[in-house]
Design a protein around this nucleic acid. Structure first.
Lengths: 350, 350
DNA sequence: CTGAAAGCGCTTACAG
DNA sequence: CTGAAAGCGCTTACAG
């Protein structure tokens, strides 16, 4: 096939006008059956496919969904991403990647402008929790349908609908599990609460204490306070450093018998720190993570954690965006999906 | 911004013709400096960005790269994928996902036609080892630049350039590592050799024996022969089942002291089978995998394996495709990148 | 039910 | 150095 066939070629071969071919292509009712099947035959014979770029151009609709994410995705983001891809199966849309490269953080506003003005996508999915607020501001002003996944925007009441796990309940369940095992002194390790999910998980931790009639000890809550530029690479270190700080408080042995880490990556850092101090999991200290990353079942011991329905979240975000594009929905709502505690080998009764 | 500005708006505001604006936009030299800077100012002031779809349409170039992959990517594919994204940073191209959904395998030819005729991408990256031959045939006939990653096409001499790890040398190194530790009887577990990489790894295993003056025992080579429809989900099972078959051959104890598994996923299956039979790694049997997946360092014991430079492969595939699109290269070559044995805890001297 | 014409937002010869 | 006109491959009123 040297040069691609156009609608004119098909019209000529079929002996009809381009208009009629276009009608057939778009399944318009106002075409005689005979004409339609004849044109369809010609199309079939010649293996003709209309140029998507021409169609997109004239219809002002590309059938492309832009996915804004860090260039280097974090394990959790990849899971959601795969859910998005799975969700797209049911729609006649394709996914365009709009990665954000962190080294351009300095001029990130410009970089984000480039992404936003890209003009190629009919809608945007934001899978980038640490996206700067000003960008969300711009997004919410844009005419483009946008939906976010576990984002920071919700903290400032921007008009962007979002989807996430029920982080509050998830944390509540996790800590309840520990309490159910007899633990009474449970430490919390997390990052600063610039993120909605970090805040919610801490709240869940506190609520579990309250509901069980326990008072949590603020000394046992380690919030890593430095600014988190690159959340992906810092998490393990946050877990590690926070645990060291926690251990330094009580010598030689800590009084808490369990630790709830805000993410699995942090939990892995916790494991490393405990290991180095000769503390055994779960014999000396029980440990619960959050996220249920694929690697959570490969740690030693396998990590008890809170499962997030990442695939479902990906699928749901697609459906939501599609509804927005179709004008069926004027979003702005927050949707939360249920979590589940996955009990593995890092927790035990005392 | 209610309606988007067009080049005509800018031309009017600047008091020049659309042609001149277009020249400025495209950095053509034949514009007076004064005119250029004036137009540039107007563009800047109005925050004007040319419609990529219109530009793509008229230039017949979308600046989009299509990535053909399974909808559900396998850990190794994700690593390469991230390399592709990283590689794209240096080019003015964006990535369009062209996932293949396996349930449509029945009519996969049609499904692949849809992808191929998509017409939106200026070039294609195929990250889908089990892609059917007929599709590669079509790809090689298409006018579109295509480059594959560790594909099956090379087996049939199709004219598609490809990139992969040096699987032969990688396997050679892995088995040499075992031989260096004193192992003399080393089993091999792999899948059928419909894939170039499976064949090469087996060849490397054999070569290591030959070069060391050892004869390998064909009874110790377990090739899982059933057709592999969904490589992702079967690997762990292949490792598991093949190990069981291997163990059934010699009772109660095997005479080999090490196993080389063709992939890390298979190695994980091997671990499970050995565990169930009360054989300890590495005390009773040493184990080496291949791929160095992220989870390889989280297994118990941490897996000694062959590292593939997946990020580099991703970057390289982008560069190659860009050169092809620019007409700098008429590919067809196979490129291989070096591997490295990562020694962890699953191997030891005997 | 069908077709001629205009137009989407750009670029590219062509002419000056 | 600059602009008028044609054209890329479709769709969409409009007229019949």
């Amino acid at each position: 096939m040297p040069t691609r066939l156009t609608i004119s070629d098909i019209a000529r071969k079929a002996g009809v006008s381009k208009t009629t071919v276009s009608r057939v292509l778009n399944n318009r009712p106002d075409v005689e059956d005979k004409t339609r099947s004849h044109v369809l035959n010609i199309i079939e014979e010649n293996n003709y496919v209309p140029s998507p770029i021409a169609v997109g151009y004239v219809k002002n609709k590309t059938h492309l969904i832009g996915l804004v994410s860090p260039a280097e995705m974090h394990s959790w983001q990849i899971e959601v991403f795969q859910g998005v891809v799975a969700g797209l199966k049911d729609y006649n849309y394709q996914l365009l990647l709009l990665p954000h490269y962190p080294d351009e953080a300095a001029e990130s506003s410009k970089e984000f402008d480039r992404i936003l003005n890209n003009g190629l996508a009919d809608g945007l999915i934001v899978l980038h929790p640490s996206l700067v607020q000003s960008y969300f501001q711009k997004l919410s002003n844009a005419e483009l349908p946008v939906v976010a996944i576990d984002d920071a925007s919700s903290l400032s009441n921007l008009a962007i609908p979002s989807i996430g796990a029920n982080n509050y309940t998830g944390a509540l369940q996790a800590v309840r599990h520990l309490i159910g095992l007899g633990h009474r002194k449970i430490a919390f390790i997390g990052a600063n609460n610039n993120f909605r999910f970090t805040r919610d998980r801490l709240d869940g931790y506190k609520a579990a204490h309250t509901q069980a009639g326990l008072v949590f000890n603020p000394d046992f809550v380690k919030i890593y306070d430095e600014d988190i530029v690159n959340f992906r690479f810092l998490q393990e270190q946050i877990g590690y450093k926070s645990t060291l700080a926690l251990l330094a408080q009580e010598k030689p042995l800590p009084s808490y018998t369990a630790i709830f880490a805000e993410t699995d990556e942090m939990a892995i850092g916790v494991m490393r720190a405990l290991n180095e101090h000769g503390l055994r999991i779960p014999d000396d200290i029980s440990l619960v993570g959050f996220d249920d990353l694929p690697k959570a079942s490969y740690t030693t011991p396998a990590l008890t954690t809170v499962h997030q329905p990442t695939r479902e979240m990906g699928k749901m975000v697609v459906k939501l965006l599609m509804d927005m594009i179709d004008g069926k929905i004027i979003g702005q709502k927050r949707h939360e999906l249920d979590t589940e505690v996955i009990i593995r080998a890092s927790t035990r009764a005392i």
